[in-house]
Every structure is written in structure tokens, then in C-alpha cells.
Nucleic acid binder design. Sequence first.
DNA 1: GCCAACGTTGGC
DNA 2: GCCAACGTTGGC
Length: 141
Amino acid sequence: MTTLLLKTEPADYSFDDLVHDKTTVWDGVTNNAALANLRRARKGHGAFIYHTGDERAIVGLARIAGDPYEDPARPGLNKAGEPKFAVVGIRAVKKAKSPLSLGAMKGDERFAGFTLLRQPRLSVMPVPPEIDALIRELTGL
DNA sequence: GCCAACGTTGGC
DNA sequence: GCCAACGTTGGC
């Protein structure tokens, strides 16, 4: 059971939008490392939603609604002849009682080494179990 | 296959 | 608005 963290610019698509829609297809990921992480999602896994831009905080929890699949809108193949782009359906679970800000994570040594703090621009990443537990504790999710 | 130039993300 | 950190593209 691997939890993911998904970044989104709230002006483009926010957690509140997801709550309103109930489900959505998480598409538009182009970076190969992010796509590799996205493909590791499995139905039922959790996914924290992180707002970039002015908010810079984990704001809610979603659930993977089904296994990832090829993006029908971008039917390209990679060099290995496999689908280049993948998407995954997610479902809103709960909004965080208290959003967990990037600053708070940076100031908490228990988050040291977390990919979110180390790898800028990566929009999809796995959340290790101990970080997962910490985020749930601090956000009330 | 290398690498310079360019584009994008996203924090500051 | 700036810029660091990457990724991508294209010339060679």
C-alpha cells in the first residue's frame, strides 16, 4: 500500500474542485519520473493533494479509484513500445482539518529526506509509510 | 552520444 | 519578477 502525493496548482484544479466533482481523472502528467510514480498507483491506495503556488500545503486526501491506464487523449508510445502517458482516476476522501504547509514540513526534522522537500518540480511522488503517518497525524486526515 | 540552448515548474 | 533545478530538443 503506497500512498502518493499529487501536486496541483489550485487555480487550475483545487481540492475543493475535486470535492465538488467527487471523482476526476488525474491527467496532464508529462515528466517521466512523475509518470513512473503515477503508474505505481493501485486501486484503493491513498493520495495526498498538495497545492502549489501561494498555498504550498497538503490540503486533502483522495483515493485511487482504479489502476492507471493509458491516456486516451495522448496515445503516444515510448521507445520500448509502451504507452508513454498514463492517467489515473481518483476520488475525494476528506479535506484536511489543518493544512500542512511546506514551511512546517521544512521546519520539522522528521520530514528530512522527504522527496517533496528534495526534488522540486516532481508532481507525483510516493509517500513513505512513516511520512504518511506523520502527515495524517498533523493534518487530521 | 554529447552538450548548449531553451522551456517549465514552482519556491522565494 | 527572479532564478534554481531539471527535462527536452536539436545541431553536430
